[in-house]
């Protein structure tokens, strides 16, 4: 279980997150959704101990993430950030093999190689395994990073926008893989996604964030409501039943409630040019 207690994050005078208190139960897929700048990544990197909270504490599987030994945490929780840059020139396989570091400290055993191959296969990277990362497309590279985190084989997996750059096929494949990992291997998966319909289709719980706090949280059915989504995303969204699933649909002509003035300004500016 992940417990978040009174967590806040401030930069200077500006509080960008919190106070947030909540729990994410063990097992299943939890999606964090919300508009840009809502604090999703901030919350996730704090849970993943990559960012120190200004106040409050987080425990994952009973370990306080700020106090526990980094290595112990790495064997239990893995996190992939939204952006990933690497100075060195690595092949896909070398990158994925790094995921085994918490278990083998760099000396790969047969067991480690098995995990690496599994993770590569899992994301359809087999044919690309010997390519260098800078020879991949954006989506392929994204899958390589996700494969590294999966090779880490941890109970808790935190992924910040794993669907970034992925086409529809690979997005669906990846979500199904994550779903399987939760159902069959009992992993706890927390992901940040922007496509609310993807979140609804694959997750057990959805946490909707807005302005640095948790606005709503509940099952997909509870969150997939026109009023809730319109409020969280600050834009008119309708929810329709399609093929037995709730589907959120945006209005192509919509103008955001609070950004109306700005938008019309821009439009008139464009029109006058």
């Amino acid at each position: 279980m992940i417990t978040i207690t009174d967590v806040t994050k401030s930069y200077g005078d500006e509080t960008v997150l919190g106070p947030v208190t909540g729990q994410i139960a063990k097992g299943g897929v939890t999606s964090l959704v919300g508009p840009n700048g809502a604090g999703k990544s901030t919350l996730m990197t704090i849970i993943g101990r990559l960012l120190e909270p200004s106040e409050g504490s987080v425990t994952v599987g009973g370990l306080d993430v700020q106090a526990a030994k980094s290595r112990d945490l790495a064997q239990m929780m893995s996190i992939l950030r939204q952006e990933n840059h690497i100075t060195a020139r690595l092949t896909v396989r070398e990158l994925v093999a790094f995921g085994r570091f918490p278990h083998s400290q760099g000396r790969l055993t047969d067991e480690d190689h098995r995990h690496v191959d599994l993770a590569l296969d899992f994301l359809g990277l087999g044919p690309l395994a010997e390519r260098f990362l800078d020879q991949l497309s954006g989506g392929q590279r994204q899958r390589a990073f996700v494969a590294m985190v999966l090779a880490q084989d941890t109970e808790y997996v935190l992924l910040d926008e794993p669907l970034n750059n992925l086409d529809m096929k690979h997005a669906v494949l990846m979500m199904r893989r994550l779903r399987d990992a939760a159902d069959e291997l009992g992993k706890t998966i927390v992901i940040i996604v922007h496509d609310i319909n993807v979140a609804a289709a694959y997750s057990d719980r959805i946490i909707a964030m807005r302005d640095g706090t948790i606005a709503y949280s509940g099952t997909a059915a509870e969150i997939m409501r026109s009023d809730i989504l319109s409020e969280v995303f600050d834009t008119p969204i309708e929810v329709h039943e399609l093929a037995g699933r709730p589907i959120a649909v945006f209005d192509p002509m919509a103008q955001s409630v609070t950004h109306d003035a700005v938008r019309t300004d821009e439009e008139s500016a464009v029109a006058s040019v």
Partner: peptide, 21 residues
């Protein structure tokens, strides 16, 4: 420390994720 140095090539955050302080 050669293996730990290798992980540092991935940057501060990824190295931390891999359990390197």
């Amino acid at each position: 420390r050669r293996h730990r140095l290798d992980t540092l090539l991935l940057g501060r955050e990824t190295a931390t994720n891999l359990g390197v302080s």
